[in-house]
Amino acid sequence: MWPSRNRTATVTCLACGDEVSRSTAREYDKYGDRWDREDKTFEHLCKDCYTDLCRQPRDELEDLLVELEAGERGQKSFLSGYISAVEDRYGTVEEES
Results as ranks from 00 to 15, higher is better:
Cys49Ala: 03
Lys40Tyr: 03
Asp88Pro: 01
Ala25Leu: 09
Tyr90Ala: 12
Ser21His: 04
Ser23His: 10
Glu38Ala: 15
Asp52Phe: 01
Thr92Gln: 15
Ala25His: 09
Glu67Met: 00
Cys16Trp: 08
Ala25Phe: 06
Gly32Arg: 05
Leu68Cys: 02
Asp39Tyr: 12
Glu72Gly: 01
Phe78Lys: 02
Leu61Lys: 05
Asp18Cys: 11
Arg37Ile: 11
Asp59His: 11
Ser80Met: 10
Asp36Met: 00
Glu60Lys: 15
Arg34Met: 05
Leu79Val: 13
Glu19Ala: 11
Asp88Ala: 15
Tyr82Gly: 07
Arg34Ser: 15
Val20Gly: 05
Asp39Leu: 06
Thr10Gln: 14
Asp39Thr: 04
Glu87Thr: 15
Leu53Ala: 08
Asp63Val: 03
Ala25Gly: 09
Glu38Gly: 02
Lys76Gln: 10
Leu68Asp: 00
Arg58Ala: 04
Gly74Asp: 13
Val20Pro: 08
Gly81Ser: 10
Val66Lys: 00
Asp48Pro: 12
Val86Thr: 05
Thr12Gln: 14
Asp18Thr: 11
Ala9Asn: 07
Cys13Asn: 00
Asp29Glu: 15
Asp63Lys: 12
Leu68Thr: 01
Cys13His: 01
Arg37Pro: 01
Arg37Lys: 13
Asp18Ile: 05
Ser23Cys: 04
Thr51Lys: 13
Lys40Asp: 00
Tyr31Arg: 09
Arg22Lys: 13
Arg73His: 06
Gly17Trp: 06
Ser84Ala: 12
Trp35Phe: 13
Gly71Cys: 06
Glu38Phe: 11
Leu61Asn: 06
Arg34Leu: 10
Arg22Cys: 02
Val20Phe: 05
Gly17Asn: 08
Val93Glu: 13
Ala15Pro: 03
Val11Cys: 07
Ser80His: 09
Asp59Met: 09
Arg73Phe: 00
Arg22Ala: 03
Glu72Arg: 05
Glu43Arg: 01
Val93Cys: 13
Cys54Met: 04
Asp18His: 10
Glu43Phe: 00
Glu27Trp: 01
Arg73Gln: 12
Gln56Lys: 11
Ser21Leu: 14
Arg22Gly: 01
Glu87Phe: 12
Arg89Tyr: 03
Phe78Met: 02
Glu27Met: 13
Asp59Pro: 00
Thr92Phe: 12
Glu60Tyr: 11
Tyr90Phe: 14
Leu61Asp: 07
Arg5Gln: 11
Cys49Leu: 09
Leu79Gln: 14
Glu27Gly: 07
Tyr90Leu: 11
Leu68Asn: 01
Thr10Ser: 12
Tyr28His: 15
Leu14Ser: 09
Asp48His: 12
Leu61Ala: 08
Ser23Gly: 03
Lys76Leu: 08
Lys40Thr: 04
Glu60Ala: 15
Leu79Cys: 13
Gly91Thr: 06
Arg37Cys: 07
Ser23Ile: 13
Ala85Asn: 02
Glu87Met: 14
Ser21Lys: 09
Val66Pro: 00
Asp48Val: 14
Asp33Pro: 00
Glu69Leu: 03
Arg89Thr: 03
Thr51Phe: 04
Ala9Trp: 04
Ala85Pro: 02
Leu53Asp: 08
Leu53Gly: 00
Tyr90Glu: 11
Leu65Gly: 00
Gly17Phe: 04
Glu27Tyr: 02
Asp63Asn: 13
Tyr31Met: 07
Asp39Met: 09
Phe78Leu: 04
Glu72Ser: 02
Asp18Val: 09
Cys16Phe: 06
